[in-house]
Every structure is written in structure tokens, then in C-alpha cells.
Simulated assay, not measured.
Amino acid sequence: MTRLIRLNKPHGVLSQFTDKGTAGSGRPTLSGLVDVPGVYPAGRLDRDSEGLLLLTDDGRLQARIAEPKRKMEKTYLVQVEGLPDAAALTALTKGVTLKDGPARALRAKLVPEPDWLWPRNPPIRVRPSIPDCWLEVVLNEGRNRQVRRMTAAVGHPTLRLIRTQIGPWSLDDLPPGHWADADPSLARRP
């Protein structure tokens, strides 16, 4: 039977089970959060990003979720520096040029700071003279640090990034560092 797990990955945790970085770096990994043999991440979430990460023991399901050609939508809650205007939001959806080519969001909009948001450890840097706000950004691709590079390209660097949904699976009320089983059959739905 296929196993699929929803994990709320905390900031600072690598989205892999072993740290292949500098010897003795001691960076936290998924092994400190998920003690389920045989599951592997379906996709990645940067070390400095938080939120939904899916893990499975089924290679076909892993590919269906993670492969760019599948175009599975991913929703991000993004705290950015400054207050993006309509032109900046339009640029995100029309497309921006990054070093590795054009990138565009399916949707990007201003949203209020969610009331369910947990504190980040460490907290983001706060500069009293520069306001910040929250965006909801939806992509159907996932290149390295893509959301961060896109918001920077429109003049609003990302301060905090939380993935809230991958396809039909969402973070819901899962606390940081916790996991729960998910329904793998949802991957078959259109």
C-alpha cells in the first residue's frame, strides 16, 4: 500500500534525510522529524523556506508530484519587502526573466497576514523604515529558489516563504515539525 505523508517543514531544515554538506555541519534534516522507513521527499523546499513537503514510498507517485512536466500547482504564502503595486503583481503573472530563463506565476495577489501563522525561528529581519506585506503566489513549476528570485525581480525581496498547498494536498492546521498521513489517491484526480 502506498504511503504519502504531509510534513510541515520548519525553517532551517534540509528537505533530505542526510546532510551531504560540509562534514560535521550538523544541519537539521528530515530524519529528525519523520521516523518512517522508505519514504522520500516528492520535490524540494529550500532550507530557509517553510511549509508543506510531501513524502512517499512510491516512486511513481513521487514523480507525478515532483516532475515539472506534470505541472502540479503549488501555492505559497510569501512575505515580501515593500508594498507591491498592480504593475509588480502583473509582472509576476505575465512573466519575469531570470538567469535561467523566463518564469511566471499562474496567480499572484496581495493577501492579509494569516491569523494562523506561527512565529518563525529565527524571526525575519525587521526594518522599521520599510513596510512589508503578504502575497499568495501559485506556480506550476518549481525551479531552484524560483519564488524568491521572481519577487526580487519585481523589486520586492522575499522575507519569508511558506508553501501551503501542492496539488490537492494542503498544510491545513499541521504545526511546524509535525506530519500526518495523506490520501495518495488524490493524485489521480484531474
Rank of each mutant, 00 (worst) to 15 (best):
W118N: 06
L89Y: 03
L171D: 06
T97D: 14
I166R: 08
K71A: 15
G24E: 09
H178C: 07
E136W: 08
N121C: 07
T151C: 15
M72E: 12
H156K: 01
A91C: 07
T29Y: 08
D19L: 08
G59M: 06
Q62P: 00
I166H: 06
E141F: 07
Y40P: 00
V13Q: 04
T90A: 15
V111P: 01
D19S: 04
T158K: 13
T18M: 10
A86F: 07
D48M: 12
P28V: 04
P41Q: 07
Q62H: 06
L14W: 12
R104K: 15
P175V: 09
D58P: 04
V111M: 01
P168I: 05
V36F: 02
R127F: 11
N144S: 05
P123A: 13
R160T: 05
T75S: 12
Y76F: 08
G26W: 03
A182I: 10
S25Y: 01
K69V: 05
L45R: 07
Y76S: 06
P168Y: 09
M150C: 03
P131L: 12
A182T: 12
R27Q: 13
L61M: 12
R189K: 14
E67A: 15
G38N: 10
D172A: 13
P168G: 08
M1A: 10
D183V: 03
P102I: 03
G95R: 09
T18W: 07
A187P: 08
R160Q: 08
A108K: 02
R189C: 05
V34D: 10
S25E: 10
K71I: 00
L30I: 01
D46G: 10
S31L: 01
H11G: 02
L117A: 11
A63M: 02
P112E: 14
